[in-house]
């Protein structure tokens, strides 16, 4: 018998636990024809802000050992254009659409965005990107991200919770001393689930030109290089919170996806791997199914957090 792959995140029912991570899948249209989009558990959009954003100057990405740095700076068309131009295309796939949102200013923008999305039936869930490391730079370098402050995380989640009935996912930053503390704050604020991790702030220098390889000097590190950190953080947070965790960070194949599930993730997101192999997420869905059959596990939920320790 075919094992059960479907899971529930908040009020959101997913036919399988494999999603594509925000910022690595555009708004879906670029991948059309390269994979069977319909098979995905969910699509998390590139983060949108209330107003259009031009993003950071180039170069915006560079390759690093077993990973890459990016500092796109949340380039996006803004809420209005997203709703009229991007959402209808995404919706045609029939896959639940999780809209990633970020604020250029304070908490109010998160509230306005969430309220604006709440009335749309095409939106399955909202992911609060309170952890993008690439919109603070230059002379504001010492400014904190919301996800680096437990109280700010709590207040933001709470304020958004008030205006939306959609499943609310909060995306956490690994650039903190204790991620569990932030995770608990998000849970307390009313988040239905947690996404972890966002990228790790990193830097790479071209020794020939003595310039940073990323125009704004620092960027977010992703790819297999960050996976052990991500798995550890999922495991730490899993022990502390009751809400489901969506694990991500360098998932390239079935084995790496399973690491996260064993550590406590209810679902996983494929990110950088989409750039390397657009079919990665689809291959992982098949791979997880195969693993469950081979190990005679009838339900994916029995695997979550089943780490032997």
């Amino acid at each position: 018998m075919s094992p059960r792959l479907n899971i529930k995140i908040g009020r959101l029912e997913l036919k399988n636990p494999v999603m594509v991570a925000s910022g690595t899948f555009g708004y879906g249209e670029e991948f059309k024809g390269l994979l069977d989009l319909k098979k995905l558990g969910a699509i998390v959009t590139k983060t949108i802000t209330l107003n259009p954003r031009q993003g950071n100057p180039a170069p915006r990405t560079c390759e690093t050992p077993a990973g890459m740095l990016n500092s796109i700076g949340l380039e996006n068309p803004g809420l209005e254009k997203f709703i009229t131009e991007k959402l209808p295309v995404l919706n045609k796939t029939g896959v639940p659409v999780i809209v990633s949102i970020a604020s250029e200013g304070g908490r109010e923008e998160f509230v306005e965005l969430a309220a604006g999305l709440d009335r749309l039936k095409e939106v399955a869930a909202v992911e609060l990107n309170i952890s993008c490391p690439n919109i603070i730079h230059g002379n504001k370098a010492r400014a904190k991200l919301i996800a680096q402050d437990a109280q700010a995380t709590y207040e933001t989640v709470k304020a958004v919770r008030k205006v939306t009935r959609k499943t609310l996912i909060t995306k956490l930053s690994p650039n903190v001393t204790d991620i569990s503390e932030i995770a608990l704050a998000a849970e307390r604020g009313g988040s239905d689930a947690l996404s972890l991790i966002n990228t790790l702030v990193g830097m790479s220098i071209d020794v020939k030109t003595r310039k940073p390889k990323i125009a704004v000097a620092t960027g977010g590190l992703s790819g297999p290089a960050v996976r052990p950190i991500a798995v550890r953080m999922v495991w730490e947070v899993y022990k502390q919170v009751k809400i489901p965790i969506i694990g991500m960070g360098g998932i390239m194949d079935t084995a790496s996806a399973l690491e996260f599930i064993l550590a406590g993730a209810s679902a996983i997101s494929v990110g950088t791997a989409n750039f390397v192999n657009p079919k990665a997420a689809i291959e992982i869905i098949a791979g997880i199914k195969e693993y469950l059959i081979k190990n005679k596990i009838s339900d994916i939920r029995r695997l979550i957090g089943s780490l032997k320790i």
């Binding site: 390269l34 915006r60 390759e63 989409n274």
Partner: peptide, 10 residues
């Protein structure tokens, strides 16, 4: 990074 228009890097 992606060469297909998704990452907005280039």
């Amino acid at each position: 990074s992606c060469a297909i228009g998704a990452c907005m890097g280039c």
